[in-house]
Computed example of a mutant assay.
Amino acid sequence: MNPPTFRSARLRNVTLAAIGLALCSSPINFAAKAADPPRILVLATGGTIAGQADPRATGAYKSGQITGEQLVASVPGLGQLAKLNAEQISSIGSQDMNDKVWFALARRIQQAFDKDEADGVVITHGTDTLEETAFFLDNVIKGDKPVVIVGSMRPATAVSADGPSNIYEAVQVAADPRSRGRGVMAVLNDKIEGARAVTKTNTTSLETFNSPISGPIGYVDTAGGVRFMAQTTGLKRGNYALPSGDQLPRVAIVYSHANMDAIPIEDAISHGAKGIVLAGVGDGNSSKSAIDALEAAAKKGIVVVRATRVRSGFVTRNVEVDDDKNGFVVSEDLNPQKARVLTQLLIANGMTAPGDMQKAFTATW
């Protein structure tokens, strides 16, 4: 084959230039009218992020004093990220978070998605029980649109309040199309954490929310935008139906400690607990008295789940405790408070057999 001549090469370049000119002058305009901004529904529940200073002491404040609309209006540039609509679900500190508010949140979010009212949801929330709300919603909301829960460690009236920047970044994440299909996410302090893994690790520090086992799923900042660390693979949200009414089954958490007896377990049973989560020592263990009482509870049909009071690590079946013999479930990576939420949902959905429940606890691993 003969090499191309100068003339053929020149004709080829002219042809390519003509094609480029034709593309530039064609009706396809890649810089045409920008797409409509994403519609983000902001659901406010109260918390420190909506707190105001209280004169009773230096640094004191009252939670839930500022409305969702006021929070949204206070963040500069927020309206440039998305079309925002704020609604008030509750005005409480998250230490008072309850089933009624959870159900109201879940139903409103599902309605917004089913009726195509929003492309994403941001929930403002107190930090004390933020991880439990995130995990609950992750298990009951259907669909792949992003749900982002956000809080702050300082009230809105504090010097260097962290709420405005956290809200801005939460909306950034909710408005980003790459956030779809990643489940419920928590956004605080420039990090994006998954609902299953995130937990509060410090009482006062801004750097309090972490995922001790898996680490964050991404990062976000006002300058660099949203950066996810991995693609979504096999994540399924909304595994369980939201029960009718506005209350979940009673499940108690019993905290294990040295010299523990059976009284806390017997007390939980006497008050009608349908399930008991053990916040055990080490690998979800406890004293012989406590384990014997839990075994007796399981034989009565009360669901028993072994979790651990240790900050990180998995609880493993049949190591020091004979879970098969005793009829226990282990929480795997879930801390006691999230193990309680999942136990409540499983019981509410008619799943109480230990083998079936264990499969549910290990579903994502």
Rank of each mutant, 00 (worst) to 15 (best):
180 R>W: 07
181 G>W: 02
182 R>C: 04
182 R>V: 00
182 R>T: 02
183 G>I: 00
184 V>N: 02
186 A>H: 07
186 A>N: 12
187 V>F: 00
190 D>R: 07
190 D>C: 05
191 K>W: 04
192 I>A: 00
193 E>K: 09
200 K>N: 06
200 K>R: 11
201 T>R: 03
202 N>L: 10
202 N>T: 07
203 T>Y: 11
204 T>Y: 12
204 T>S: 11
205 S>Y: 06
205 S>P: 00
207 E>M: 09
207 E>A: 15
211 S>E: 08
213 I>F: 14
215 G>K: 09
216 P>Y: 01
217 I>V: 13
218 G>K: 00
219 Y>S: 14
220 V>K: 01
221 D>W: 05
222 T>S: 14
225 G>F: 06
225 G>I: 02
225 G>N: 05
225 G>L: 05
225 G>S: 07
226 V>A: 04
229 M>N: 14
230 A>R: 15
230 A>N: 13
230 A>S: 15
230 A>G: 08
232 T>P: 03
233 T>D: 14
233 T>P: 10
234 G>Q: 11
234 G>W: 12
234 G>C: 09
234 G>P: 06
235 L>M: 14
236 K>L: 13
240 Y>L: 07
243 P>K: 12
244 S>K: 13
245 G>E: 01
245 G>M: 02
250 R>M: 10
250 R>E: 15
